[in-house]
Design a protein around this nucleic acid. Structure first.
Lengths: 349, 349
DNA sequence: ATGAAAGCGCTAACAT
DNA sequence: ATGTTAGCGCTTTCAT
């Protein structure tokens, strides 16, 4: 069916080893022979079989990228950074969308390693991945990483991010400050929530558990949670939402309930997705350097792949989150001293 | 390095053909032998090499999906439909993002076919794809398809969509109605613009060329184009934008210029991405059944793959666009009779 | 510079 | 029920 090097060899009257050499720009082929082979390959519309090639060379120059949610613009932004780095270094990337489904995540890890990609970048859906299946390939975590994994990872300091968000609201003078997040059991969440807790502790404030709510990652969930709080009359005067998608849902919920942002309820999100900057949204948030995270993850992975010794130590990169104030919260805050040591939070390299 | 069926065979004291049979649930293996082999495979943490398997079976049960732009939520929505169908039928999908780069598109087609995916679904960035490279595999177009291609495709009736949009604005009583799009030379654009033209013709209106502008797919471009028009004072009282991302940029541009939507300039987009429904945006638009398009494309492709005869005729599915009116244009319009035959526009199957 | 041949890991006849 | 063997398309020694 398909044209192979044997067909070309027959046509060119050479052995198929020579064809292979010519096609791969290998040393030691007569220039005339080479150009003849190349011409014939073109005429026959030859397409090399990467499967067969990979079988012998065990290199594919492709990376797998496993993402949990393409509808949250945060992830495409990270993907863009990964792709641009990969492309520069001669790799292609296969993107797999798990839709927050842990089973699909495991399946994709298996699939990608069976298909012998050279490495995997993964933003895991939960606090851990199936390690059974994960030992097969170079792999780096991005955006979210199991705490105790021996693998490289590129994340931001989520505790500090949560701290910055809560600190901002506190310093704006809001009295009751709620938290709306995904679940107490997901790792990232815990970190952002932990940062929020630390800010409260630092400022000597009590956390009111009535204002801490959990749901999932969907915008609609944010909408529902806040609407319910407002309906019952039991709502805080400011909210820290675990991510911007959730926050935007909350924003709508507040407005649909007839209240104003930030006058009645102030709001801050997390991620700084593009939509948060829209004039109609103007959501205060904690920025993550999304593209940079992606690029860095790709760099580390490729370095790991090409370092054939195989045992360079894992790199744990922790990037800095950054407060971005827009209209959904007050714009200015007092400059407070730093409540805990920078060095306990930030590790680079 | 990696454990292979030979390792298992040695361990289990059988030939490696038997291992292969056991692992693939093939007929004719002693249950005891089978379970012993399975146990050993587990112990050895065996991962089948899909590369080798694919080399002999020439089936991979993976699809390639080539998309031009992950930052436009329209495409992830289509991808979701594709993935859910693929998963049901036992296929995985590799997503490749071209970022509107035709070169990358060609590269990815080549790459995917070299890696012997079973088929490709592509939303091409332009009016044609490199046919040199595209003959290798079953392939179906989604969202956008070269007009004269002999391949299957799933699109909406863009002419009718453009017509509906313009008709709506005309019937709302707007007098000067502009069009902001990507480029006259991209195919989809031509269709949506053509629909707009037909509506004008049908209603005996003249098109004012000053109000037809082209840029690219970015939101910022919409912002800039409208801002410039307003600055010079030469702007229409309604605008049809070729897609919602562009329209949202235009919305911001109008508001930043101190004008109101729809009072000063009415606006309608195209695609009906999730953000268009937001309370703060409330963008009128033309809905595309995004998930359905994706599902249908995947169904057709898989059917094509599994139909081993290979020459089922291509299917050209054209789905119906639908007018969605929100606050960015007037809500009601007169019911006009149908200016051209339904049958000239809609073909299903 | 070129050819012959082995082998990557696996499946699928064909034997036994 | 199991083993033997030939190949899938390619790269890579080792000869020549």
């Amino acid at each position: 069916m398909n044209v192979t090097i044997k067909d070309i060899a027959r046509e060119a009257q050479v052995s198929y080893a020579t064809v292979s050499r010519a096609l791969n720009n290998k040393y030691g082929v007569n220039p005339d022979t080479r150009s003849r082979i190349l011409r014939i390959a073109g005429e026959l519309n030859y397409s090399p079989n990467a499967i067969a090639r990979g079988l012998v060379s065990s290199r594919s120059f492709t990376l797998g990228l496993i993402l949990p949610d393409l509808t949250n613009p945060y992830f495409p932004a990270v993907a863009a950074g990964i792709e641009s780095c990969a492309q520069e270094k001669g790799y292609s990337v296969f993107l797999c969308n798990t839709n927050w489904d842990r089973r699909r995540e495991t399946n994709y890890i298996r699939l990608l390693s069976e298909r012998r990609v050279d490495g995997i970048i993964i933003a895991p859906a939960g606090t851990s991945i199936d390690e059974e299946v994960s030992d097969l390939l170079p792999m780096v975590f991005v955006s979210n990483a199991p705490k105790e994994s021996p693998r490289s990872s590129v994340v931001i300091d989520n505790i500090r991010g949560g701290y910055l968000a809560a600190k901002h609201l506190i310093e704006c003078g809001y009295v009751s400050i709620g938290f709306i997040g995904v679940s107490e059991h997901e790792m990232v969440d815990n970190d952002r929530l932990e940062g929020y807790r630390r800010a409260f502790r630092r400022y000597g404030k009590e956390i009111d558990p009535r204002y801490i709510r959990f749901g999932d990652f969907r915008q609609q969930t944010g909408y529902n949670l806040i609407s319910e709080m407002i309906r019952t009359g039991e709502y805080p005067d400011a909210i820290f939402a675990e991510n911007d998608v959730l926050a935007i849902g909350i924003l709508h919920g507040i407005k649909d309930s007839g209240l104003r942002v930030p006058e009645d309820i102030a709001l801050i999100g997390f991620d700084d997705i593009a939509f948060s900057a829209y004039q109609e949204i103007q959501l205060s948030t904690i920025n993550q350097p999304k593209e940079e995270m992606g690029r860095t993850a790709a760099e580390i992975l490729i370095e790991q792949i090409e370092e054939n010794t195989g045992d360079i130590p894992p790199r744990k990169v922790i990037l800095e989150p950054e407060l971005v104030t827009r209209n959904s919260s007050c714009r200015e805050q007092k400059e407070g001293e730093h409540p805990f040591e920078e060095s306990t939070l930030v590790h680079r390299g």
